[in-house]
């Protein structure tokens, strides 16, 4: 943690950005995405629950009403497919063996 940065008022991260938070985790990124999102389907989604529920913040809403997804820093937890209630929006599987998240102290 960067001790020089004073916590912003109302910020809980003691100066730690979300990027820094994710940088504490090791990811062995696979060449092929293990989760895919069909942004066309997402356009009709009224909840966009994945956007706030994904602990890794991997879903970003786009200006055209869809979502942009990046699989690289994924915990492989399953939250997104469990909170998504639109059929066909997500395909979800595990990364190929040896790839993806590596926890060491969890």
């Amino acid at each position: 943690m960067n001790q020089d940065v004073a916590p912003l008022p109302g910020s809980h991260y003691d100066g730690l950005s979300f990027e820094d938070r994710m940088a504490t985790v090791e990811f062995r990124v696979a060449a092929r995405p293990h989760i895919t999102v069909d942004s066309d389907v997402c356009r009709s989604c009224t909840t966009k629950a994945c956007v706030h529920a994904c602990p890794a913040q991997l879903f970003v809403p786009t200006s055209d009403g869809g979502v942009l997804f990046n699989y690289e820093q994924c915990f492989e937890c399953g939250t997104c497919y469990m909170v998504c209630n639109t059929e066909g929006a997500l395909t979800w599987s595990y990364p190929e063996g040896g790839h993806g998240v590596v926890f060491r102290r969890s």
């Binding site: 938070r21 504490t24 915990f75 937890c77 939250t79 926890f103 102290r105």
Partner: peptide, 26 residues
Amino acid sequence: IAALKDHPAIAPLVRGGELKEYSAHT
């Protein structure tokens, strides 16, 4: 988590802790 860490009963317990790993699982 941040709100929990800010709670007056928890804040003194976690003060100064340096984040080593963040994780999630269902």
